[in-house]
Amino acid sequence: MASTKAARIGEEVWKTRVDKVNAELVTLTYGTIVAQLCKDYDSDYVEVNKQLDKMGYNIGMRLIEDFLAKSNTGRCANFRETAEMISKVGFKIFLNITPTVTNWTSDNKQFSLIFEENPLVDFVELPDDGRAQDELWYSSILCGILRGALEMVQIQIEAHFISDVLRGNDSTEMRVSLIRYIDDEMPADDE
């Protein structure tokens, strides 16, 4: 139920309230940033992941206001609802994709986002230096964005990729874990 409501809001906002840009501009700009970071950090991919995550965090902290202003929604009642909003409204209005929410743990505190499509990686092939395939998480910026955005609405999470088609995996999967609700005034029944 929460899922169809989120899908409706996402569609509506995407159609009527979002300015569109050329997707390739986004892909190429992001690619340039990642490539430059790889150069600046001498192919220290672990550090590159970290930097991308940090950049994303700073974006997320700002983007959340745009998300809230455009979607005009209230607070989510639980983490499952939050997951649906991230996928069907957040990713929908900013990237026009709706990653699949799945693989919930039984305590409802961890889920996966499976990206059937990811506009950031069009045209991308990782460097074949024998390490990038194992160390670089190319789309790490997305993890940071989620972390920054959710922190601003008092939800502390951890997010990282656990597979990526760029590395030759079958799917691209991000794991998102709820750490805690930050404000003690928050509802305690966060199922």
């Binding site: 700002r62 983007l63 206001e65 745009d66 202003a69 005009n72």
Partner: peptide, 19 residues
């Protein structure tokens, strides 16, 4: 609501504005 949208656009999206 409209003021909030303007704030999201012209304040938060300004990269040099500090939260």
């Amino acid at each position: 609501r409209r003021v909030y949208e303007l704030y999201a656009d012209y304040v938060m999206k300004n990269p040099f504005y500090q939260s």
